[in-house]
């Protein structure tokens, strides 16, 4: 079966891969590109574990057909770190114990980045609604919300 050749920019690097047309972008990233940071928790867009930025918009990569990514710019959790320097969100998640098992963490980091890119000073309620598409079963969200608040503060002060 002929596969489709896709050219993208992922985490700043030009990347091309071959894929079946019906394959999800999530599976293409995980199986073809080898980036397993985005996770599949549901495959139906209900948990946010597969969140990526697709052309700067937060998206469930499980709901994107891989060929749609042709020519797109993609950011995954692996690209959050800048030359070895953690993003303030990553640092605040670590310091604030905003993860337990960690499976949802990549999705939360991406969704939180998307929020702070748009709204550098969100209220607690805005944070909670912006992260409502990301399920976490371990933390009860408390420490995640606090970590995003702290990261927002640090980023505003920078």
């Amino acid at each position: 079966m002929a596969r489709t050749h896709i050219t993208t920019v992922i985490n700043g690097d030009e990347v091309d891969f071959l894929t079946e047309d019906s394959t999800s972008l999530l599976n293409a990233l995980r199986d073809e590109v080898g980036l397993t940071g985005a996770k599949e928790g549901c495959g139906t867009g209900d948990c946010g574990s597969c969140s990526i930025l697709l052309d700067e918009r937060v998206t469930c990569s499980c709901l994107v057909f891989a060929p749609e990514a042709n020519g797109a710019n993609i950011l995954t959790v692996e690209g959050l770190t800048d030359a070895g320097e953690l993003h303030p969100l990553q640092q605040c998640f670590l310091e604030g114990a905003a993860l337990q098992c960690g499976i949802c963490t990549p999705g939360f980091l991406i969704a939180a980045k998307a929020l702070l890119d748009k709204n550098p000073d969100p209220t607690e309620t805005e944070i909670r609604y912006a992260l409502a598409g990301n399920l976490c079963r371990c933390t009860g969200y408390d420490k995640i919300v606090r970590a995003v608040q702290e990261a927002a503060l640090q980023m505003r002060e920078q």
Binding site: G48, V58, C60, A114
Partner: peptide, 9 residues
């Protein structure tokens, strides 16, 4: 309509 992730699409 769904989450922020969904509303991007």
């Amino acid at each position: 309509i769904g989450s922020d992730q969904i509303q991007s699409r």
